[in-house]
Each structure stands twice: as structure tokens, then as C-alpha cells.
Amino acid sequence: MTAGVEWLDRVNEHDEVIGRVTRDEAWEKGWVVRGINAFLVNSCGQLWIPRRTLHKRMFPGCLDMSVGGHVDSGEDYLTAFRRESREELNLDLDTVPWREIAAFSPFETPLSGFMRVYEIRTDRAPDFNPDDFSEAWWLTPRELLGRIEAGDPAKGDLAELVRLCYGDQLT
């Protein structure tokens, strides 16, 4: 394995592995891969929404999901969720209540890949990795979508994920 290269599983329309590709190849060619996202939700129903650091290669300075990342080659969704939560938020999932709230296909939604979405319940802002995020806020789904609609830059799937997962809180 080449140092610094992120390997992902390329999958077909049934989420079955059909090959192994680099992250860059997947992005350049639009190949379907797997990802995880999670939202920290407090007792008031607010989502913990961070801003990506400006040195991020993809979506620098954009609002982001509380946790997000690709499922590495050979990894399953849950393992990726645990790894990303630890890397980005210094959060051990054995210490907080969490649950899977959705599973999406890019063939049935406008999302960028197969995706599992999780929800972590906490009233405490995490000790996030400053290499990943620069700042964060607790926002209701409506407040978040309002910021995005007003022009605050956001990661590609963020608004759609909020609509799909928390749309009942928008009416």
C-alpha cells in the first residue's frame, strides 16, 4: 500500500464490492463508494455543526456533518463510524448513546454515495480535532438550512442529509 493513499471499495448499485480504488480516482471518475455521517444531537434537538478548516482539500471552510468520512477498503460501516468519531471528535462510542438513523443509496437519493447515517445523543460539545474543524455551533435543522440558503458554504450532502433525516422538524 502506498503511503498517504486512501483506498476505498468501489461498489455497484447493490452496495456490493466490485473493486478497489483510491479516493482521488473515485472523486475524479464519479465512482460509487461508501461513506458514513453522523449528527450529534442535544436534548433541545439541536445539531452540532462544525466548520471545516481552510486547509482541507475538499470543501475547505464549509459547514459539515458532526462526523463524516469514507468507509476504507475492507472496512464496514460501523467500523468506519467508530474510527471517524474517534479521529474527528476524540469520541469513544462506547461512552455515549448512539443509533443508526438511515441508510441511503445514491441510486434512490441525490446523495454522493452509499451512506449510513448515525445519531449521537449528547449535550456536551466534543473535543474536536482542530486539524478537521475550526469552529462549531448547536443549530436546529431549520437554523442550519437557513444559514446554507443565506449563502454560508456547506459540504455537498449536508443540506440534503438534514432534509432526509430531520425533515419532520422543518414543518
Score class of each variant (00 low, 15 high):
2 T>E: 13
4 G>C: 05
5 V>I: 14
6 E>Y: 08
7 W>S: 08
9 D>T: 10
9 D>E: 11
11 V>S: 06
11 V>K: 01
16 E>I: 00
19 G>L: 13
19 G>P: 05
20 R>T: 13
22 T>D: 00
24 D>L: 15
26 A>F: 00
29 K>C: 03
29 K>I: 06
29 K>S: 04
30 G>M: 09
30 G>P: 00
33 V>E: 01
34 R>V: 15
39 F>W: 00
40 L>N: 00
42 N>G: 09
46 Q>A: 11
47 L>T: 01
50 P>C: 08
50 P>G: 10
51 R>L: 05
52 R>S: 14
52 R>T: 04
55 H>D: 09
56 K>A: 14
57 R>P: 11
58 M>H: 11
58 M>A: 11
60 P>I: 15
61 G>M: 03
64 D>F: 06
64 D>P: 10
65 M>L: 12
65 M>T: 15
68 G>H: 08
73 S>A: 15
74 G>L: 14
77 Y>P: 10
78 L>R: 12
79 T>Y: 01
81 F>E: 04
85 S>W: 04
86 R>F: 09
87 E>Y: 09
89 L>P: 04
91 L>S: 02
94 D>V: 13
96 V>K: 13
96 V>S: 07
97 P>Y: 04
98 W>A: 12
100 E>V: 15
100 E>P: 05
101 I>R: 06
103 A>C: 08
103 A>N: 12
104 F>W: 05
105 S>R: 08
106 P>G: 12
107 F>N: 12
109 T>S: 13
110 P>I: 03
111 L>H: 08
115 M>T: 01
115 M>S: 07
115 M>K: 05
116 R>F: 10
121 R>K: 11
122 T>S: 13
127 D>E: 13
127 D>Y: 05
129 N>H: 06
130 P>R: 08
131 D>G: 03
131 D>W: 08
131 D>A: 12
132 D>Q: 02
135 E>L: 15
137 W>T: 02
137 W>R: 09
138 W>L: 07
138 W>T: 09
139 L>R: 05
144 L>R: 01
145 L>E: 11
147 R>E: 06
147 R>A: 09
149 E>S: 13
149 E>R: 12
151 G>P: 04
152 D>Y: 04
152 D>T: 15
154 A>D: 02
155 K>N: 09
156 G>R: 03
158 L>H: 00
158 L>A: 02
159 A>L: 11
159 A>H: 11
160 E>Y: 11
161 L>C: 10
163 R>C: 14
165 C>Q: 08
168 D>R: 08
170 L>R: 05
